[in-house]
């Protein structure tokens, strides 16, 4: 896909270099093995101070051959040291370059190494949503998820009951092809995607088109907005509020008269949009706040309280 290559050429090159460096080449391994052989010789020498033996050339202790062998080893280690020195300079240059890239990201010329860990990172829809999917994927039934939401919303009857319980009157048709996907974060719906013939257009809940924000999918500005956008957004907000996931996709199609029909609430979407960095961060912030709202459900009933034997921990400061 297109975004695989956008702006990441340098990082790909660096990545290759790092992989090469971290996983030594066969030549480097051979060299390393050679060093070990020298080391083994030294160790065998340590076992018997008067003896320096190699597998191929037996050397008489104290002989000129021993001296020559030692000198040869010295020359070899010197060569290795020179190569290591050269590598060091090259690695330091590479490290500095990366620190400059990070510096630019943080408004500095160079980001000091010890400052790297101080960052809060950048919120990300893709990173957050995939993390939570993997967590729920550890359930006995990965599709259902740990909270069972996936199983519930796979059942049209229970899904309809869920809608009705929250006063949403829309029909439910799991067999329909969705044309609108609402990206919903526990009651917030910052972005909708509209599909037509394999092309996509995005809208904010207010109906504004942010343009071509999804590099991997073809953008079509002509795809019409849903006829009843506000109703669809309102229903999506309501429904997502009561699903214990920071992020869900609520899929809709429209009848000919524009009435929205719910196709499904997807708590484990296979496709998560890879948007421009600005939009990934914007939806990432929505994920972060959705994550906090998800925790409100157990928090309100005291289920997150710290435990001590026999109950929950409470502490009052006294002097």
């Amino acid at each position: 896909m297109q975004q695989d290559h956008k702006g990441s050429g340098f990082l790909v090159r660096i990545g290759r270099r790092v992989r090469r460096a971290v996983q030594p080449s066969p030549a480097a391994e051979a060299e390393s093995a050679q060093v070990e052989t020298v080391g083994a010789e030294r160790r065998s020498e340590g076992a018997d101070e008067s003896e320096l033996s190699t597998a191929s050339v037996p050397v008489r202790p104290g002989s000129i051959e021993e001296l020559r062998a030692l000198r040869a080893q010295i020359a070899q280690v010197q060569a290795e040291l020179a190569a290591a020195d050269q590598e060091r300079e090259s690695l330091k240059a590479e490290r500095l370059h990366l620190q400059e890239i990070l510096g630019a990201q943080h408004g500095k010329r160079v980001l000091p190494r010890l400052k790297v860990e101080k960052t809060n990172g950048v919120a990300s829809l893709v990173a957050g949503a995939r993390m939570m999917q993997r967590v729920h994927g550890k359930a006995d039934d990965p599709v259902a998820g740990i909270d069972g939401a996936g199983a519930l919303f796979a059942d049209a009857e229970r899904t309809t009951a869920f809608l009705r319980s929250h006063g949403v009157r829309s029909e439910v048709d799991p067999a329909a092809v969705p044309t609108v996907v609402v990206h919903a974060f526990k009651g917030r719906t910052p972005l909708l995607e509209l599909w037509a013939e394999g092309q996509v257009r995005h809208l904010t809940p207010g109906g504004e088109d942010p343009g071509d924000i999804r590099p991997g999918v073809r953008y079509d500005p002509e795809i019409p907005a849903p006829a009843r956008l506000r109703r669809l957004v309102r229903a999506s907000r309501t429904l997502s509020t009561y699903v214990p996931r920071p992020y869900v996709q609520i899929r809709w199609c429209e009848k000919r008269d524009g009435t929205p029909v719910l196709v499904g609430i997807d708590v484990n979407p296979q496709r998560i949009p890879v948007l421009t960095p600005e939009w990934d961060e914007r939806l990432g912030k929505a994920f972060d706040s959705g994550h906090a709202r998800m925790l409100m459900q157990p928090y309100k009933v005291g289920a997150l309280d710290n435990r001590v034997p026999g109950g929950t921990f409470s502490y009052e400061e006294t002097v």
Partner: peptide, 11 residues
């Protein structure tokens, strides 16, 4: 370098 390479990437 391995650490910094990852840090330079988007999430």
């Amino acid at each position: 370098i391995a650490v910094l390479t990852e840090e330079a990437k988007s999430p």
